[in-house]
Amino acid sequence: MKKILMIDPDKCVGCRQCALSCSFNKEHLFSLAKARITTLWAYKIDMNVPMMCQHCEKPLCMDVCPMGAISRSDESGAIVIDPDRCIGCRMCMVVCPFGAVTWDEDTKCMIKCDLCDSDPECVKHCLYGALTWLPADEAAISRRQLGAGYLAEALIKLKE
C-alpha cells in the first residue's frame, strides 16, 4: 500500500525540526531556504502550518515544466525534479498552490520534497505528531476519526 505524508497543523508547535532535518539530510548543513518543508507561523489564527509538497494526483508543476524535468517516482509515488533537466525557469514555483517548490541559489535549480525514498526525515524528527507517514487508507481513516472527534465534541456542547 502506498504511504502518504499527513500534516496536522493543530499539533505543530513551530519547532522547525522538520526543516532543519530536511536540509541536514539533503545538504549536510542547516538552512531554512534549502529545506523542502517549511513551517509558517500564522499568528492571526494562532497556528503553525507546515508547508510542503502534497504530491498531488494531478500535479500542475509537472504539467507546466517545459523540460519534462518533473515526474512521479514509481517507488515512492513522490513528485520529483531531475536537476539535470531543470533549467530554473520557475514555472513550477508559479503554479504550485502550496508554494512547495523553491529555488536553490547555489545549484540554480528548483528543489522540492522527494519523500526521502519513502523514509521522510522530517517525520522522524517531528515529536509532536504534526507530521505522520501513513498508508493512504489509514490516513483517510485517521482523518475521519479526527473529524468524528470534532463532531462528537460539538454535539456534546450542543447537548450542554
Binding site: 508547535v13 513551530g14 519547532c15 532543519l20 515529536l127 509532536y128
Partner: peptide, 16 residues
C-alpha cells in the same frame, strides 16, 4: 491553549 515552541525545540512548553 495553543502550544508552541522555539525553533529546534523537541519538548515545547510555551503557550497561548
Amino acid at each position: 491553549k495553543t502550544a508552541f515552541g522555539c525553533p529546534s525545540c523537541f519538548i515545547a512548553d510555551k503557550e497561548i
